[in-house]
Nucleic acid binder design. Sequence first.
DNA 1: CACACGATGCGCT
DNA 2: GCGCATCGTGTGG
Length: 188
Amino acid sequence: MTPPRPLGRRFYARPTLRLARALLGAWLCRRDGDRVVRGRIVEVEAYTDDAASHARGRRRTPRNAVMFGPPGFAYVYFTYGMHHCVNVVAEHDGIPGAVLLRGLDALPGANGPGRLCRTLDIDRRLDGLDLTVGEALWIEPGRRRRGERVVVATRIGIGADVELPWRLYLAGSPGVSRRDRAAEAALV
DNA sequence: CACACGATGCGCT
DNA sequence: GCGCATCGTGTGG
């Protein structure tokens, strides 16, 4: 088994939307006993202190506290009474920002944030986990392939009044939860 | 303490 | 496209 090669703190310490883009093509890694399960990140969404974010208005609560902390940590929350979603914290200590992981390739059943977490057995036990350690959950380097286009679309499940083009995904990837034909057509 | 609702997914129409 | 399961969290009383 190849040893973990987790990305370091510096990788995460940047503006949220830029981290979102940098995460496309990287590998999300989850330890499963003696094995490591890896999925290629192909769909993400950025959340900062905007109206649709858990950290809206920079209001700190017990749930969203990790979003305000240092970068490179996992923010995992529970929603709809049955689903978990995992985020990667960006920015620097004190500034809220996180990237929601919405879809993975090279791993069946990891399209959509809830299914992704179910497939990788991610729940609130991992909230606040340091992703730079390489123990239970981490991210390894990976890049976009030649000719692989980044589609810029609006976030899913967000009220029209606060929609922002902060969902990014790799065109043509099977792990994408929902395509945006108009956004794809807007590509050169 | 009560209550409204969600960064979703699934099954049915 | 639509309804709904199911419960933690935030907000207000």
